[in-house]
Structures are given as structure tokens and as C-alpha cells.
């Protein structure tokens, strides 16, 4: 096991791009490699050592044996864990855009909030965010109809707009509330929201499941109310309690399902 710790020395107003600093590339780097490394900032590259003091401990034969720890204010560090396929990343602060985007394996833990596009187009692995996330978490790259295809995103706080846009597989679990249009254009997979949803979950969804354990304020006409199910099993996961099942979005000829906790959503019955 190799532990690589990035301790911040100073912040930059222009974001640092960390797309190359993932376990896949740095598992065999020595401290001197980090000191030499030039990190992209804006249109230039600057010495990483200006911004981070990197400590390297232990040995790794492969990315899987890497534990990368980032300390300091990461609000201007983009692409943390971007495209990583294995290993472990722990960010001890809020992170900037594209955290865990296109990751295919391994795990990322963010002890703070995440900016937009966290877990965008993930194809595997686990992303856990202790705070809130902004827009387009687990979404697709713009224009693509295939979003996140596998893996797991857990958000302990609230989620912004268009969570899981074009979701094509995998699972997103939000423990807090969710802004408008979660699961828009969803194709497959599971979104579980434990808190409240403001408006219009599952707009134009074609397939997949959205479970809402909190209150939903407004719903779309494109969904048909089906039966009430007690203790359902949804996408292989057991839930307890009474759920009202809706199918849609008919507007798109969709066959998706939205499960609403019955006790919180009597106003929609």
C-alpha cells in the first residue's frame, strides 16, 4: 500500500487541473516526480510544489494499492479522480468541478461539498460525498444520451438540479433533498432520494427507477399512478414502507417507475 498525501501550501484563484494526478498515473511516482510535476493552470503549467507539498509513503505495484489523500482547500482543484480506474482518493475539503468524472473503478471520498458534474459519465467505482453536490451530478457529457452507466454515488447532503441526467446504469443515493428534475432523460439505473424533491422528477425518463422517501411538491402529467406497494423490492434493493408507484414518462413513451413514500405524499393521491 502506498499513501500519497497532498498538503496544500497555497491556493490559486485559477483552478488547478488534476486530471493527470490519479492513481493510474502516479502509483509508481517518487516524491521527486511530484516535485518536478507541472500542473496545468489556465493556459500555463506551474510547478505543483508551489501549491502542494506531497508526501509519499509505502510502495505500490498497481493503482489499486494507492491511497491518495488531499488536504487543504480544494475549492479550486478540478478533475480530482477523473478517469481513475482503481485505488482510493480521499479529499478532505470541498472539491471543484468534475470530481470522479468518467471514473471506472476505485473509490473517492469527499469530506465536503462537490461542485457540478461530480461523477459525470461514471462507468464504475464508488463516489461518496459527505456534503452537498451542485448540478448535473452523475450526468452525461453534454449532448450524449448515455450518462453514468455503472457504479455508486452516495451524497450525504443535498443535490442540485438535474441529478442523474441521462442515467444509464448504476445507483445514486441522495440522503438530503433534491432540486428540480432528478433523473431527467433517465434510461436505466436507480436514484434514491431520502429527502424532499421540489419539482418534476423523471422528466422524459424512458426507464429505470426513482425512489423518493420525502415529499414531492409537483409532479408531471406524463406519469400514471399505478398501485400502492408495501415493502417493495426495487432494482434488487428492499425498501420498507408503503410506496405509491407511478409509471412514465408517457410524454416520451417511457417505461420508468417513480416510487413515492405514501405517508409523505398524500397530497398527490
Amino acid at each position: 500500500m502506498k499513501t500519497i498525501t497532498f498538503n496544500q501550501k497555497k491556493t490559486s484563484p485559477i483552478a488547478l487541473e488534476f486530471d493527470e494526478l490519479i492513481p493510474d498515473t502516479i502509483y509508481n511516482w517518487e516524491k521527486s516526480d511530484f516535485d518536478k510535476y507541472m500542473v496545468p493552470i489556465g493556459n500555463s503549467k506551474f510547478s505543483l510544489s508551489n501549491y502542494f507539498d506531497v508526501e509519499v509513503g509505502g510502495e505500490a505495484e498497481s493503482p489499486a494499492e494507492v491511497k491518495m489523500i488531499l488536504n487543504g482547500d480544494l475549492g479550486r482543484v478540478k478533475y480530482i479522480g477523473n478517469k481513475m480506474s482503481d485505488g482510493q482518493v480521499i479529499a478532505n475539503s470541498s472539491v471543484d468541478l468534475h470530481c470522479g468524472a468518467e471514473m471506472s473503478g476505485g473509490s473517492i471520498l469527499v469530506n465536503g461539498d462537490a461542485e457540478s458534474y461530480a461523477g459525470r459519465e461514471m462507468t464504475g467505482g464508488e463516489l461518496e460525498i459527505k456534503g452537498n453536490v451542485k448540478e448535473f451530478c452523475g450526468a452525461s457529457y453534454i449532448g450524449d444520451w448515455r450518462g453514468m452507466t455503472a457504479g455508486m454515488i452516495t451524497i450525504h447532503g443535498n443535490a442540485g438540479k438535474q441529478l442523474g441526467e441521462c442515467l444509464t446504469g448504476g445507483e445514486i443515493h441522495v440522503k438530503g433533498n433534491c432540486d428540480i428534475l432528478p433523473g431527467i432523460h433517465m434510461n436505466k439505473g436507480l436514484i434514491q432520494i431520502d429527502g424532499d424533491v421540489t419539482r418534476w422528477p423523471g422528466g422524459q425518463m424512458q426507464n429505470g427507477d426513482i425512489v423518493i422517501n420525502g415529499t414531492l411538491s409537483r409532479f408531471l402529467e406524463g406519469f400514471n399512478q399505478e398501485e400502492v406497494v408495501i415493502d417493495p423490492t426495487i432494482a434488487g434493493k428492499s425498501f420498507s414502507g408503503k410506496y405509491i408507484k407511478f409509471t412514465g414518462d408517457i410524454a416520451r413513451n417511457g417505461k420508468g417507475t417513480i416510487w413515492l413514500a405514501a405517508n409523505k405524499n398524500r397530497h398527490l393521491l
Binding site: 428534475l181 418534476w200 422528466g203 422524459q204 408531471l220 406524463g222
Partner: peptide, 11 residues
């Protein structure tokens, strides 16, 4: 959004 969704559903 809700209005257009309803139109599509009617269609």
C-alpha cells in the same frame, strides 16, 4: 416544462 409535458402526454 409541465405545460409542454402535458401537451406531449395528450399527443
Amino acid at each position: 416544462y409541465e405545460f409542454y409535458n402535458a401537451m406531449r402526454a395528450v399527443l
